[in-house]
């Protein structure tokens, strides 16, 4: 019965979507929907000096949305850390009977700085080649995740991650406030010199903002994975809950 209702709902939804989209399905060159994109492509080099138009849109033309996105990630990291409070300090020992062996143990530690270097490269060259702050930060957090999953005794201090995250967020907002002091008087305006196209030190505040975003995303996702794998060094009273319950009984 449930499946029949599901089918009927899906069929009506499909009919609705297809009737909306069908007249555009055969067009590969929709000139009429490209007006804003056209303007963004044209204005990238005059207004921001970055070679990557997507970066110019994300950081400069719609920079406030990026601040909101970083806030949403921050909220989700807090949510996960709060919800997994009871097992944030209990390590992976109870889950995985095997530590991962010698190769995983030392291999991940060896590979961690290389992956972090690739992540930092992707963050630093966000205005010149595809990438930017978000994939770079995610890459660094993935390296941290790999080390935490294979070394079950490893602990990471979420207090340090919180300090790094806070400082990076402060840097983002501080760079935006610089725009208020310039002559354009708008938050997140590009006030530093734009430089030459294609150089690493160009495009005003865009590399600096992406560096702040990359650091913040890496710290947030490290907090998230630390709470999930139970490798938190600064877990609160929950980490002694096993002993506490036994003592109370």
């Amino acid at each position: 019965m449930r499946k029949v209702i599901g089918f009927l709902l899906i069929a009506s939804f499909a009919f609705f979507i297809v009737s909306l989209v069908a007249r555009d399905l055969w067009i590969d060159d929709p000139a009429q929907v490209r007006t804003i994109g056209q303007a963004a492509i044209g204005q990238t080099i005059p207004q921001s000096g970055a070679a990557n138009t997507v970066t110019a849109i994300v950081v400069q033309f719609r920079g406030l949305d990026t601040l909101g996105e970083v806030t949403v990630l921050f909220l989700s990291a807090i949510g996960v850390a709060l919800l997994s409070g009871e097992f944030a300090g209990r390590g992976l020992n109870e889950l995985f009977a095997d530590d991962g062996g010698f190769i995983l143990h030392y291999g991940t530690r060896l590979v961690l700085p290389l992956i972090a270097l690739v992540g930092a490269y992707i963050v630093a060259h966000g205005h010149l080649s595809p990438g930017g702050g978000f994939p770079g930060g995610v890459l660094i957090a993935t390296a941290v995740f790999a080390v935490l999953m294979t070394n079950v005794q490893q602990r990471l201090s979420t207090r340090l991650m919180a300090v790094i995250e806070g400082l990076a967020g402060l840097a983002f907002v501080g760079l935006g406030t610089l725009g208020l002091l310039g002559d354009k008087f708008s938050f997140l305006a590009n006030v530093l010199p734009k430089g030459e196209l294609g150089f690493l030190f160009s495009a005003g505040i865009i590399p600096l903002i992406y560096a702040a975003v990359g650091t913040k995303v890496a710290a947030e996702l490290s907090t998230l994975v630390t709470s999930l794998t139970g490798s938190d060094k600064d877990a609160g009273p929950a980490s002694v809950s096993a002993g506490g319950k036994g003592g109370a009984r």
Binding site: N52, V54, T55, F87, L95, F96, I122, P130, G131, G132, F134, P135, V138, L139, A141, T142, F145, M149, L221, V225, L228, T229
Partner: peptide
């Protein structure tokens, strides 16, 4: 869309799969 491809590969296939595996284990 190479920007989006890098982001989707890093988040969708690396981090999401890791979080799912942890959830399955727990």
């Amino acid at each position: 869309a190479p920007d989006v491809a890098i982001t989707e590969a890093a988040i969708g296939s690396a981090l999401t799969t890791l979080v799912y595996v942890l959830a399955l284990r727990r």
